[in-house]
Amino acid sequence: MTLTHADTGAAGAGGDGPYEHGLTEDLARAALALARRFHAGGTMWCASPSWTFHAHHVAVEFVHPVIMGKRALPAVVVPPGADLVASLRATVRPGDMVVVVAGTAPSDPGGADVAEVMRRGPAWGVETVWIGAGTRPPAGAADHVLWLGTDDPLVASEQFVRIYHLLWELTHVCFEHSGLLQPDLCEEEVCITCSDEGRTAEVVAVDEGGDAVVRTAEGRERIDVSLIDPPRPGDLVLVHAGSAIASLEEGRS
């Protein structure tokens, strides 16, 4: 099923060309995830700190399909120049998607903000897709990491267009499989109460009495934060049985 570089005629020699091992499998998986989120009413937020035009291109593909008969889907560009984290925090809702085209810091100066957004995905309840090239982000940086091996910014930029075009095309193929757009059948209740559960939450506000209002994928809730150093609004914490048991900010520079 997987073609080699020679078969696809992709640029680059040997195994380290710009066309990465497994990229199309990742694209397929990301497309199905996006289709499920759109189907459930989610909005796609598009951003690209260093290539604003890519963010606009992604959004226009989904909103105004080039192929007749395809659905217009809600996709929005995060205003360029805005504080990416603050802007998304204010607007995303659980069930949404965030698609970003960016490299990693320091080669892409916007990469640090992007990593911050992706890290917050679980607390915001959003599905994250990180399209990029060059040095790969750490494993698990986003729900979907669609990565190119090339260090050439122009080659990367051209191939980003392919990636998001394919993402759009595959997403629409998924809409033709309505049975696969339903929530997972085997999604059975996890023991949320007692054992080793820990949910990622973002602190919204801290009370004087050692309580905080936090945001999780399930909504807002009030938790106890007296077991950890006083958090600041925007910090990520791990919540277990109504208490923050760990800060996810320590050791981060």
């Binding site: 497994g22 990229l23 499998e25 494993a139 986003a142 729900d143 990565w147």
Partner: peptide, 14 residues
């Protein structure tokens, strides 16, 4: 493995 967060990283690990 394709359904894990960052499936590409999961494949590499396996």
């Amino acid at each position: 493995v394709d359904e894990y967060r960052d499936p590409a990283a999961a494949r590499r690990a396996v």
